[in-house]
Amino acid sequence: MTKVLWTQQMIISTNINGKLVEKSVEPRKLLSDFIREDCGLTGTHVGCEHGVCGACTVLVDGTAVRSCLMFAVQADGAEIKTVEGLKQEKNGPPLQDAFSECHGLQCGFCTPGILMSSLEFLETNPNPCTKDITEMLSGHLCRCTGYKGMIEAIHKVSNKNL
């Protein structure tokens, strides 16, 4: 059993983008803040901080989750992928190119979260239909693009995989 009083810190060990990170954190620190403040990986954006906007989405042990709805202490022993690790993934660079080519982003605030969700999505749905893509994107708020460019971009990457 692990026990950490509120006055204490816990040393957590995580693998972030392939690099082992060991840092001590207080229990109430959100994973999103840990990634940005303690690890300096500010590519993960923080929008609403209550799980609605999806901007802070990262992969924890391969699945897309809201990093503002997890505590850093819960990521002890986990493998985390943030947008900074995208280039290491097979579909990472193609996704970045396709988002750029299809105008899948404008201001870019929501983009890191959407790229991470898309990465997991394409792993499990190599050849998705538009409805599936829309369903996945429904977990993200974007106020610039109208989503159409993103849907096109994801189609483009999946077609390349065929």
Binding site: M1, T2, K3, V4, L5, W6, M10, E26, P27, R28, L30, D33, E49, H50, F71, V73
Partner: peptide, 16 residues
Amino acid sequence: MKPATFDYYRPDSVVE
């Protein structure tokens, strides 16, 4: 929008 402090317990079994 940050949670207040709390003590954190992570049991490894149902009994714990």
